[in-house]
Write a protein that binds this DNA or RNA. Structure first.
Ligand SMILES: [Mn+2]
Ligand SMILES: [Mn+2]
Ligand SMILES: [Zn+2]
Ligand SMILES: [Zn+2]
Lengths: 140, 140
DNA sequence: CCTTTATTGCAAGTCTCTTGCAAGTAACAT
DNA sequence: ATGTTACTTGCAAGAGACTTGCAATAAAGG
């Protein structure tokens, strides 16, 4: 179970499992869209969890360090979003430019391309980001 | 020539060609990496062009409105970059995670994928962003 | 239960980008 | 050329996301 896996990661790096970290984790676990820090903060307030926005930022950064959360910087959003990586595979997103809805695209067309790019540019390719924008079914 | 094309666009929207807009345009024209507002500001200072950072922001926004400049939000950079679209075709970038160097990738593998995504998600797909990161030849 | 040390909340700070407004200037008509 | 008008600029201030300093709090382990 997730909390156990993450406790191990925390301990291995001299960190502790706390009430606030559990709350952020449990929220990320049951949410199916990537969340911004302020959205995490607002949702936890609603859930009657006492937490400061600063702690949300520190928590997502810890989870990112542990490799358990992905940080997304979507085009023109001006804020990062975070989603659990644990148990989900590499994928990308499409976002509605009207209502902001974000949907997973469970695909990645870039494996082959990486080789081509390494040949052409002499870079060693590490990561990539890919995002689509458009109009969702409700906003067309 | 570029300045003429852009003068027309400005006039058509009730705007004027000014000393500062010429300076920003000419810098973007001769630069082959996308530039941030503060980089534009710093380079123009070096070129002895009197301009305020606020004016740089306003200028790139005007050029973006006219469709003459693309705004890039690269992963984890925390600032936007701008590059001329005029005369260059749709492409993507790879950035060195050590030195920050940005190189054009003169390709886009996403035409086909768009149809597939529209079928799967029922979105109408508009735009996309794609960026690679890695280590450039000097930083490996 | 006690000690140690990581974590938290609050305040303040940083950074990018935007906005209000008076002064400056490009565009156009006289 | 000169004047009129309205767009543009610079400066100051503000907004928003995110970070940092520090004293108080609370995990973890004995
Ligand atoms: Mn996702
Ligand atoms: Mn480019
Ligand atoms: Zn991918
Ligand atoms: Zn493309």
């Amino acid at each position: 179970m997730l909390e156990k896996i993450i406790s191990q990661g925390l301990k291995a790096t001299g960190r502790r499992m706390t009430r606030t970290r559990k709350a952020v984790l449990s929220l990320l676990e049951r949410t199916h869209e990537p969340l911004s820090a302020s959205e995490i903060f607002a949702q936890l307030q609603e859930d009657q969890v006492a937490i400061d926005l600063v702690t949300v930022y520190r928590t997502v950064n810890v989870l990112k360090d542990l490799g358990l959360v992905a940080q997304l910087d979507l085009h023109h959003e001006g804020q990062s979003r975070y989603e659990l990586k644990e148990g989900r595979k590499h994928h990308h997103h499409i976002r509605c430019q009207v209502c902001g809805k974000i949907v997973d695209l469970l695909l990645c067309p870039l494996k082959k391309l990486t080789k081509l790019i390494e040949e052409r540019t002499k870079f060693v390719v590490g990561d990539h980001t890919l995002e689509f924008t458009g109009f969702c079914p409700q906003c067309q």
